[in-house]
Design a protein around this nucleic acid. Sequence first.
DNA 1: GAAACATCCGTAGGTCTGTACGGGTGTCCA
DNA 2: TGGACACCCGTACAGACCTACGGATGTTTC
Lengths: 124, 124
Amino acid sequence: MTGTDHAHPIDPERVAHARSRLPGPDDAARLTSLLSLMADPVRIRLIYALDVAEELCVGDLALALEVNEDAVGYALRLLRTAGLVVTRKQGRVAYNRLAADFPAPLRDHCLRQLVELTRSTPAE
Amino acid sequence: MTGTDHAHPIDPERVAHARSRLPGPDDAARLTSLLSLMADPVRIRLIYALDVAEELCVGDLALALEVNEDAVGYALRLLRTAGLVVTRKQGRVAYNRLAADFPAPLRDHCLRQLVELTRSTPAE
DNA sequence: GAAACATCCGTAGGTCTGTACGGGTGTCCA
DNA sequence: TGGACACCCGTACAGACCTACGGATGTTTC
């Protein structure tokens, strides 16, 4: 292990303050599993496309994202399992759209605002 | 490959619309590398702790997060490399805080609001 | 100057994730 | 009813990620 267990906090007050407000391990797990779904080039662009186009089928998504259908299919499977995307089957075509309870902060601020940010600022 | 290359778009209008507004691969890469940094239990709680406590050293962070110093050190290395965390050395103690240009949407909406969301809604 | 402390660095190991491939199911058109 | 199409599923492989460990650096104290 690196260093000792640091039994002497340097600023006990701040440690206690942070500790009391900190999300628990279970909440953190839920949150990170959600963020992990966004943290992929194919999935984030897929979500972005559905946010713009309302509804798209698998083949059209592959065209819009310029990736093969395998990648789209895999991405959709994960998003569907997490409940972020719902599918409406009509004939032999499966139309996908963002779920109604898609987290608003993610959609409004992270998606749209962050894209602007990462475009203007060189990220460091 | 799965299926053919789907040369016949079902809804060409929406495909073109989505394609024109879609972030390019480079922008998507920047965005996902940023989100990947948040998509980890240790790092997200670390950022949360710094957001609350303003400034903390490595050992105190390990105490607050209830993880060993190795995990904290590794997390800080990545966040520092990305420019999200800055370090102020004073004597033999290194105080860490969020960078001044830490993306505001991430801090305000994703961090605080999402924690609330993932607590109340069972995520599906 | 020597010992103790807080932190950082380089490396090896196990684990998880994303991709590619083949095959399968259900639907539409002639 | 036979063929073509859009899509889904299960499996194997390559790559990235996180963790744990030992050692090294700079600083304070006596």
